[in-house]
Design a protein around this nucleic acid. Structure first.
Length: 194
DNA sequence: TATTTGATTCTT
DNA sequence: AGAATCAAATAT
């Protein structure tokens, strides 16, 4: 067994490793898997010299045209087209006239699906709700279609936080009562904090 | 062209 | 329980 190169983590005299950015192939997986795995990853925003990072603690999965809660169930429109595109791209939309919601597109091109980022933790403070999150991170529709696999403006990082499946609650999605049976699917993933 | 709706948040 | 506020979807 040859000696392996192990990334160091801020040891004395060492430069700190840059955490890996989540890649296209990371998002090219089943949406429920991506959603589950995003818990504990970091959302990073670089904007005007300001750097802001939050640990993701709540997400929701929206999967395909048959999922009536998924915007893409209305078909391929100017609004939903981004969800039909390649994974790892941002889908940002305005909701209720005043709030933005951030999603990351998942699965193969042609299959519309995404994960909604619902809540993050910033320096121990819970930013609960997609609208509040986007307000704090200054995310609006100018970031719609943004490639989230570049280390620019907005991306995801794996900072090595391990999250056990036992610490993740699966709950019904919020605000989709109109979707009938689809509203009851436990496709919301939330980190249990106690 | 007109009306309704919505992956929300805040106030009453 | 209701308001704020508007783009997109749906009805006309």
């Amino acid at each position: 067994m040859s000696e392996m190169m192990v990334p160091s983590h801020g040891g004395e005299g060492e430069q700190r490793e840059t955490p890996p950015v989540l890649t296209r192939s990371y998002f090219l997986r089943p949406t429920l898997t991506v959603a589950r795995d995003l818990i504990g990853k970091f959302l990073v925003r670089h904007n005007g010299g300001e750097l802001l990072a939050g640990k993701i603690v709540e997400v929701e999965a929206y999967v395909g045209t048959s999922d009536r809660a998924c915007h893409a169930s209305k078909g391929r429109t100017a609004r939903t087209e981004v969800m039909f595109g390649p994974p790892g791209v941002a889908y940002v939309y305005l909701i209720y006239g005043m709030y933005h919601c951030l999603n990351v597109v998942t699965e193969r091109e042609g299959f519309p699906a995404a994960v909604l980022i619902r809540a993050v933790e910033v320096e121990g403070r819970l930013i609960d709700g997609p609208g509040r999150l986007c307000r704090l991170f200054k995310i609006d529709r100018s970031l719609n279609r943004w490639d989230l696999t570049l280390r620019q403006s907005l991306w995801f990082e794996d900072r090595g936080v391990f999250v056990s499946g036992r610490d993740i609650d699966q709950l019904p999605r919020i605000g989709v009562e109109y979707a009938g049976e689809w509203a009851r699917k436990p496709w919301r993933f939330r980190l249990r904090t106690k």
